[in-house]
Design a protein around this nucleic acid. Sequence first.
RNA 1: GCCGGUGUGAUGGAAUGGUAGACGUGACGGACUCAAAAUCCGUUGGUGGCGACACCGUGAGGGUUCGAGUCCCUCCACCGGCACCA
Length: 836
Amino acid sequence: MKYDFAAIEKKWQDKWEELKPYAAVTGSDKPKFYGLIEFPYPSAAGLHVGHPRPFTAIDIVSRKKRMEGYNVLFPIGYDAFGLPTENFAIKNHIHPSIVTKQNVENFTRQLKMLGYGFDWDRVVDTTDPKYYKWTQWIFLQLFKKGLAYKTTMPVNWCTSCKCVLANEEVVEGVCERCGAPVVRKEKSQWMLGITKYADRLIDDLDDVDFIERVKTQQRNWIGRSTGTEVTFKTSTGDDVTVYTTRADTLYGVSYMVISPEHPLLNKWKDIIGNWDEVEAYKEAASRKSDFERGELNKDKTGVRLQGVEATNPANGATVPMFVSDYVLMGYGTGIVMGVPGHDQRDWDFATKFGLPIVEVVSGGDVTKEAFVAKDDSAIMVNSDFLNGMTVAEAIPAMKKYAVEQGWGKEQVNFKLRDWVFSRQRYWGEPIPLVNCPTCGWVPVPESELPLVLPQVESYEPTDDGESPLSKMTDWVNTTCPCCGAPAKRETDTMPQWAGSSWYFLRYMDPHNDNELVSKEAEEYWGPVDWYNGGMEHTTLHLLYSRFWHKFLYDIGVVHTKEPYAKRTSHGMILGKNPHYVGFAETEEEKQALIEKYGSQAQRPAVKMSKSLGNVVNPDDVVKAYGADTMRLYIMFIGDFEKTATWSDDAVKGSKRFLDRCWNLMDMAQDSFEVSKKNEAITHKTIKKVGDDIEALKLNTAIAALMTMVNEFYSNGVTKGDLEYLMLLLSPFAPHMVEEMWELTGFAAKNDGKMAMQMDWPKYDESKTVDAEREMAVQVNGKLRSTIIVAADADEQTIIDTACADEKIQRQLNGMQIVKTIVVKNKIINLIVKPAK
RNA sequence: GCCGGUGUGAUGGAAUGGUAGACGUGACGGACUCAAAAUCCGUUGGUGGCGACACCGUGAGGGUUCGAGUCCCUCCACCGGCACCA
């Protein structure tokens, strides 16, 4: 009988649609398991082959959990607001909501095609007013607690399109679309106070099971550092405070620098002797794009403030003050102390402006470059009472002294900035606030949520950088919910990150019109037990959603501090690079490729893209080989965490394996007993596959199943042996297994239960070991022979057997054994030296 | 520059400090076939040897160990992220 995957997959998908074996039951007595994948952005291009990698992996985990008796929640939804849809809509003159609807339908078809065990009754869509009602509700709670505030801040402004760009749209300092330079422009923006949660976002990482890479990246992104704030007196009458992590270098300060945006500069307008020059510098700095200011311009520039001097509180020395754009207004206090001896940036600046360079930590040559000690055991010099101390001792000593003297205090700083939450775009959740001339910003009453995104004729960005909604005067003009006077709605919308910051909560109770999630559902399902997603979301989505969840915890909506108990990450799927030099036949071709594509030509694999023609469409794969093959291959492709390259050839291997499984039915003896010959491999495989699924090592789990099948081919097989193969394979290739389960009579035998409804098989540790073991025998660490010994042989028997081996005899000739090392079931090492 | 990761046959990739290359592609040989495909059975790291075997081999160089792909040190290359964060 032939394995007709197309018919079989259709048959079982229809059956699942009808029977709903994947429905999650809130409040069941079974232990719960909540497996989560990052919900996709429904693009016009459809599912990419990258999507099935995490989806299949967590599907497999979820299926195994179900068989182990868990009540499983494995949901799916769509993160459908966002720029690509909006741009597609503008270009093709179709309303974004229609584009979204079409894309969601296509994604749904593709996901069902792949046989995922999603609970399709719990689908969420961030663009559904019933959903974003609660996104808006959360925003209002943030607003009420003072965590959402409006402030003027610099945004990316395209000088040619005359519009605000998201950071993602700025590529190397120029506009992604038109290539014109992008500059900073001051605009009023809604912000969320994520920095208030910075400490908790770092500290609570200790309590969750995230892969270490993710934790490190989050910690680095938040960037907590503990240092000292030191206050200097200045000749202007104002004191200035600097932040430093190197209080030990205070005796090495030879100048001060203030950021061009610092408000004190304007205050000092009349004091600064060369104000014209300073003002021109400020002006120039504001005109610079981020790119010029950061990437290109590592050259230090600046202007000395005539008539402004600061006094070093540590030694009373008077030092000049400069304005320079290498000091950022957004970090620390916007003013730094210049220690050119021990900070390379300060050294560059001091060298350029001819400022003194004082050595206060010994070990380098500060006339050549700044000495930044790798460890903190270097010794202090030229530093009064710190002399002779190590850096490690000097930092706290100086800090303590500064605090005692009243001009210093300990200070913790973060790199993390507050979250810029508004977008001047159409396709997002409207921000539910009204601006009243008398009452200020007033929330739309919760009873009026959702504040529905109005239908507009034109959703193109405006010339003045205002949201497209601002042109909808009917919608914009409203009355103040507070005093009833005429007022205007906020016309900015929320960023795409809003809807995705809490979607996992909605899955728990997706049809609830009265609450975001019911207490009962949240307490039953929360937290997410296992969340898998891409590394690219580690610093944005993951951090934002942890922040929102902590806020919801604080206001009593959820019962756990952290949303996700466990986080894993998958690698990207790349395509073959058609321009790779390795594919060139001749030397000339190679040279031509390198000339044309540069370093791109050196990479065998690159991201899939239409222009390279290396995109693989899951539809085509499923059509040619079936969904089970697709699922199996994408798991077998390699280490789940690493990037992998798609290979059309290798897909065949997975198909061949499924064929081999299928064909076993023809050769199976008609007995429901496990054959003695296959007992060891069966127990070994149950163990290996189970362990590997838990560790997400699905490639080796599949390899183990292949080994099992290979043994079945050489040992012969019974239906009883097949039962275990089917159960183990069921999470990977659910369609084919159900068909086999039925054909081999196991369905009938088990009251019509499907394989996926059976218990996950258990193994007997004692049966996973063969009666006899092969052991390697080394002489002086070099492999010389292998021996066969009984699994329960004692050490002496093993040594005797090894020494009796013919090849070992030859090695031992004329030698005496001085030491033996025996590692049970693995290896024996005989250490010998020439006999006297 | 900083942080994180990777480097293993022709190739994708396996290896709790314990027989390097599991499993899969590809290639080669055989069976079946008029033939091909499919399928099944073998072989497949390199060098030398008819052979038994011997030597070499996990980016480079050192080290620790009875034993290192794995641990430590110093480099090199590539990938990802951040980048004047005081």
